[in-house]
Simulated scan of single mutants.
Amino acid sequence: MQHAWTGGGLRFSYCTEHDLPDISRMLSKESVCRWLFFGPNTDEGTRSYFLPLIGEMRAAFRAGRMPDHHVFTVRLEDTGDFVGQCALFPVDFSPGSFLIGYQLDDVYWKRGYGTLACTFLVYFAFTLLEGYRLNGDTVAGNTASRRVMERCGFVLEGIQRKYWHAGGEYHDRLIFGLLKSDLAPERLSRLGETFTAA
């Protein structure tokens, strides 16, 4: 079973315990967590969240099946330097529907890597998992995350006012969606050419 893919100069691989120090360092930063409803995290907090996910994925691979959760570490293909992470989580009672997530270390912002990570999730969900829908959300003030989803074809489907409370303030939640049927077959085919098995 495939565990890693490359595309656009990045390597996307299923997260393992070896990745946790890099993830923990990233999620301890105020800058990275500014628009997240969690964090900055302690090392213990990060490990307690990720270890069960890593365990579930590892058990699935040992059993020869796809895991329920797909959490990827993103690194530069040529050096292996840590860039961030991205993930697909199943939506309860809706097989084939997934929630997307991505976080990049602040030293790699504004290089197009967020859009590439989101594009990888679109490719993975619609091509390898045969999903039909992707769901995304962001704080209204996080224009960078909003642009990433819009570049990948996501459509704004709703606003939940004062949904999150973080940093002593209330924040609106923007809800985005993308259907597989929104994408032309040629675009899906191009995604398959962008990412290759590593």
Rank of each mutant, 00 (worst) to 15 (best):
K162T: 13
F82W: 00
K29Q: 12
G64A: 03
A140C: 08
H70Q: 01
R111L: 04
N41S: 14
W35E: 04
R58V: 06
P21D: 09
R58H: 09
F154A: 10
G141S: 07
W35Y: 09
T196E: 10
G96H: 03
F98S: 02
Y14N: 06
A198H: 08
S181I: 02
E56L: 01
V32N: 02
V122Q: 02
G80K: 02
F93A: 12
A184S: 12
R173L: 13
G64R: 06
L88R: 00
S145D: 04
L179M: 09
T143S: 08
T115Q: 08
R111K: 05
G136T: 05
D92R: 14
E186C: 09
T138V: 15
G101Q: 03
A140N: 08
C86L: 00
F89S: 08
Q85M: 11
C86T: 01
G158E: 06
T73A: 07
R65V: 07
A197H: 13
L10T: 01
G39E: 01
D92G: 15
E193G: 08
C152A: 04
D22K: 05
N142H: 10
T138P: 08
L174R: 06
L36E: 06
V91W: 06
Y163M: 04
A144T: 00
R133I: 09
M66R: 14
Q160R: 14
E17K: 14
G131M: 04
F126W: 02
Y14W: 10
F61L: 04
L121A: 03
L88E: 01
L88K: 00
N142Q: 10
A60Q: 03
A144K: 04
E44G: 14
W5M: 10
T16R: 07
T194W: 13
R146I: 14
R75A: 06
P185Y: 07
E77Y: 04
A87T: 13
V139A: 13
F38P: 12
A184F: 10
K180E: 05
R58E: 10
F38R: 15
L129F: 11
H171W: 14
H3S: 13
L20I: 10
Q103T: 13
T127F: 08
D68C: 11
V139D: 11
P67V: 00
